[in-house]
Design a protein around this nucleic acid. Structure first.
Length: 596
RNA sequence: GGGGGCGUAGCUCAAUCGGUUAGAGUACCAGACUGUCGAUCUGGGUGUUGCGGGUUCGAGUCCCGUCGCUCCCGCCA
């Protein structure tokens, strides 16, 4: 990175360079003033180099100037590389074997006192609010520099991999059309067509399908997506997907391709490649066994269906549920019998929040005795069967849920995660990847209607396709997710490539013909002109980087993220705009902007 | 929209049962110091206890309201 202002970087010098005269540029990291001699650790993104300044070796005015140097001042230093005496080598620094004995130092810029310490350990404890307000300082920290560099390495590897698989990177519009059945759209009012709005894309979904119709065969894009929904630690209103689509494929082609893509990303991020092929789980299996369509497989802790054991139970609560077509499942929290009351209260509250009437449990004491408010209703045969089914031993905590399958799975699925965390069985360094396949095509929406589980362009499994109108909720989709450590990394599907079936599907969703022709006419028309069978997938790049980097929020992996109210605290966006701008757009606000 | 947590010095935090002049580390400022590398030593407190109201002889502490940040549920085809 040699330039007119420097000959080398702050992370580059080694004992081999001793004797060379070099010029470095960077930020003063720490300044150690001994009166008669000064040490300045000079930092750039590549590392730290110790600069020594001796008043007998620099002009007086430079010595004067150096006295004023504070952390984050920007310096240009020229000097000779010298070996450090053996007892002064700093093993913690890559450059610790040498130092630069300066004979000229220029203060390129001064710095105000930083609002928070630019030290990786200290800064991690500083509020996100401050870090985001001064994001350019936060990003100066080595840890954040590493995150940015690692993200770059992964996107480079993704591009190289997809290029090797004959993909073409194609950009699609940011100003596009609203498709209101997904997330809430971000809207951009049009000046040239008054009274209308563009929407920012929630995903390049329709464009990439149209690129398949166009014969592109294999498309990808590192695509920015926008969804105006409430934020989470792993959800930002704008985020990045590795978006791809292929023609003439089945799901097997996607699995094989994406397995390789993920392996390339792991390696680029400095991790061992996962064992391929990645394991697969059907949606039905995932829900049954783990209570979630994005199971964390870093640990087992399976949900066990104990309905048969209680087929003839005397326990009214269980009996009523079974008679009503519900299910009874249990999970064995190994070693959690001693879980404090406070924890159990939290878990019970969570179970109720998930829809359960209450949380039944058995604490298995050290002497093997079962302590539980419900066990008195169990017969000896039921107890024996339970013991065998759940591998019950001293110290275990057995949790029961009895209700509709959906409620039971939700509640126990969440409890499974809490119990694993409480038991400390999650290896934070582990990576557990899985495909989840065969999602349902539809789910019931709040009003009892149908809603596409993935999106309305998803093709059903061929065997199911003709039950579209008769038993829509029974249709499995050719849809799949990739899950890493209990986080949905991404997903996709084989798409409907026949206009007639796409119309049938819109109709099955309860959409009048006039409506789907209006909203999706462009896609339907395209499908009429020889659309190839095609499908694809999108991976959340921010989430992938978060998991690969061991971070607890995707904000750590985004240069300029937004806070929980979707504001950019550094730029102060969103912000009020001028009357003139609004007039041009033909807009008037009903709400006033908050005043400062 | 709902639930939880937090809000005291630039930063990270402490302050007992409601009690006297709100402290510590660090940062910062001044001075000293020729081998440090989280330099050290000496001195210095730089504060609207988020904001507003209330209770009280007395409020950082209790009550009401409000604002901000954050985590989660809902939401996220």
């Amino acid at each position: 990175m040699q330039t007119q202002l420097r000959t080398t970087t702050c992370g580059a010098l080694r004992p081999d360079n001793v004797g060379q005269t070099v010029t470095l540029c960077g930020w003063a990291d720490t300044v150690r003033d001994h009166g008669g001699v000064m040490f300045i650790d000079l930092r750039d993104r590549t590392g730290l180099t110790q600069v020594l300044c001796d008043p007998t070796e620099v002009p007086a005015e430079i010595w004067q100037a150096v006295q004023t140097v504070r952390p984050e001042y920007v310096l240009q230093v020229t000097g000779r590389v010298e070996a450090r005496p053996a007892d002064m080598v700093n093993a913690k620094l890559a450059t610790g074997g040498i130092e630069v004995r300066s004979h000229h130092i220029t203060v390129l810029n001064r710095s105000a006192t930083p609002p928070f310490p630019l030290d990786d350990k200290e800064a991690e404890r500083v509020s996100d609010e401050l870090r985001m307000t001064y994001r350019y300082l936060d990003l100066r920290r080595p840890a954040m520099q590493r995150n940015l560099r690692r993200r770059h390495a992964v996107t480079q590897a993704v591009r190289a991999y997809l290029d090797s698989q004959d993909f073409t990177e194609i950009e699609t519009p940011i100003l596009t059309k609203s498709t209101p059945e997904g997330a809430r759209d971000y809207l951009v009012p049009s000046r040239t067509v008054p009274g209308t709005c563009f929407a920012l894309p929630q995903a390049p979904q329709q464009y990439k399908q149209l690129l398949m119709v166009a014969g592109c065969d294999r498309y990808y894009q590192i695509a920015r997506c926008f969804r105006d929904e409430d934020l989470r630690a792993d959800r930002q209103p704008e985020f990045t997907q590795i978006d791809l689509e292929m023609s003439f494929i089945t799901p097997e082609d996607i699995y094989a391709l994406v397995d390789g893509l993920i392996a390339a990303a792991f390696v680029a991020a400095g991790h061992p490649a996962p064992t391929l092929p990645l394991p697969r789980l059907t949606y039905a299996e995932a829900l049954d066994r783990y209570g979630s369509d994005k199971p964390d497989l870093r640990f087992a802790l399976p949900l066990v269906n104990v309905g048969e054991i209680f087929a003839a139970t005397q326990f009214q609560v269980f009996g009523r549920v079974l008679a009503g077509g519900g299910v009874i499942k249990a999970l064995n929290g190994k070693g959690l019998a001693g879980a404090p009351i406070r924890i159990m209260d939290d878990w019970t509250a969570m179970a109720k929040d998930a829809g359960l009437g209450g949380l039944a449990y058995i604490r298995v004491q050290e002497d093997g005795a079962w302590k539980s408010p419900i066990v008195k209703f169990f017969s000896d045969a039921e107890k024996d069967a339970l013991r065998a089914a759940l591998d019950i031993a001293a110290g275990d905590l057995i949790l029961f849920a009895a209700d509709d399958a959906a409620v039971v799975n939700t509640a126990l699925g969440r409890l499974r995660l809490l119990a694993a965390a409480q038991a400390g069985v999650i290896d934070p360094a582990a990576f557990a990847l899985t495909w989840v396949t065969d999602f349902p095509l539809f789910e019931a929406d709040a009003e009892g209607g149908l809603q596409a589980m993935h999106h309305p362009f998803t093709a059903p499994c061929r065997a199911d396709a003709e039950r579209l109108e008769s038993e829509p909720l029974s249709l499995r989709a050719q849809a799949y997710d990739v899950v890493l450590n209990g986080v949905e990394l991404g997903g996709g599907s084989i798409r409907i490539h026949e206009a007639a079936y796409q119309r049938r599907l819109f109709a099955a969703l309860g959409m009048p013909a006039a409506e789907y022709e209006d909203r999706f006419g462009h896609l339907l028309r395209a499908l009429e002109y020889g659309a190839p069978p095609h499908g694809g997938l999108a991976l959340g790049l921010d989430r992938l980087m978060m998991l690969l980097g061991g971070a607890d929020s995707i904000r750590e992996m985004i240069a300029f993220p937004k806070n929980q109210k979707a504001m950019d605290l550094m730029m102060n966006a969103p912000a009020a705009v001028s009357e003139r701008q609004l007039r041009d757009l033909g807009l008037r606000f009903l709400a006033a902007a908050p005043s400062e």
